[in-house]
């Protein structure tokens, strides 16, 4: 696991945005070989999306040959509802970038047969060649996507009942009316996320610090679904200083100290590859993972 610490959410967004852009550009996607990107909603990824938009507008990045899969969507909420994840993604990202609408995939919580919708979604991901990079955020209880505490770490895309905490937290978006908050959501499973070839997680704010500690410093536990990331071969967590508040000084110091080494390894590997000597699969591995 790689763990990068930046000063504040904006700096985190800058890092992650540039990281994703570099991954897409190095992948050199074409119409036949598209880059498949998994995307989250929520407040954590917004700074990242802002950077991606800026890079597209500056002409340094294009989503023409990028396919996206979103993590989750509420059940029963119309697509054009102001709180739907369709709306969120459109307003925060899709309307500002050059992605063809046909390459955007979001679970449809208005379908009658929700189970079929989930199965089709898994199939669609497979057909697209699997997810190259899954970007994620986490909840205060360490959930990734809507895989709330207690979710199976082997779970796939499915219907999920929301935890009472989540319903309470979300009610602020629904005029504080608990009864109008959706009770269920469709979400990719923990295993779906882990199957991505790379997972990048954005964690910002002190409220996420306990969850981050449990995910990084403690064992794999279904009560903190993010901790399953420890089993992933190629994962990256980017946090701001606030989110590290509950970590041990030793942990923070360690990851800060190896960041420079990691950068050097990556840079030299890029150089090698540019000269045609690097590992052909484009993946950079190092002892830090």
């Amino acid at each position: 696991m790689r763990f990068i610490i930046r000063d504040d959410p904006a700096a985190v967004g800058e890092y992650v945005g540039n990281y994703i852009a570099r991954r897409i550009n190095e992948f050199k996607p074409t119409a036949e070989r598209k880059f498949v990107l998994g995307l989250p909603t929520g407040s954590s990824p917004i700074p990242t999306y802002k950077v991606l938009i800026r890079l597209v507008k500056e002409g340094k990045l294009s989503f023409k040959d990028v396919v996206t899969f979103n993590m989750d969507e509420y059940v029963g909420l119309p697509i054009d509802h102001k709180e739907s994840y369709h709306t969120f993604m459109f307003e925060q990202l899709f309307s500002h970038i050059d992605i063809p609408p046909s390459q955007v995939n979001i679970l449809d919580g208005t379908k009658k047969d929700l189970i079929a919708e989930c199965e089709e979604y898994e199939q669609k991901i497979k057909d697209a060649g699997g997810i190259e990079l899954f970007l994620a955020g986490i909840g205060e209880d360490g959930h990734v996507a809507f895989n709330e505490p207690g979710s199976s770490l082997a779970s796939r895309t499915r219907i999920k009942t929301l935890a009472y905490d989540t319903i309470l937290a979300n009610s602020r978006f629904f005029d504080n009316d608990l009864s109008s908050v959706p009770r269920m959501a469709l979400t990719v499973g923990v295993a779906t996320v882990l199957e991505a070839r790379e997972v990048v997680v954005v964690v910002t704010g002190q409220r996420k610090s306990l969850a981050l500690r449990r995910a990084i410093e403690e064992g794999v536990n279904h009560l903190t679904t993010l901790s399953a990331l420890q089993l992933h071969q190629h994962s990256l967590i980017v946090a701001d200083e606030d989110a590290t508040a509950e970590l041990r000084v030793k942990t923070v110091k360690y990851f800060k100290s190896i960041e420079r080494v990691q950068d050097e390894v990556e840079a030299s590997h890029r150089e090698l590859r540019a000269n045609g000597n690097g590992s052909p699969n484009g993946k950079i591995t190092s002892s830090m993972e």
């Binding site: 697509i79 054009d80 459109f90 309307s95 609408p101």
Partner: peptide, 10 residues
């Protein structure tokens, strides 16, 4: 409606 045009008409 930009969002509908995007998602529904693609």
């Amino acid at each position: 409606d930009a969002q509908k045009t995007f998602y529904e008409l693609g």
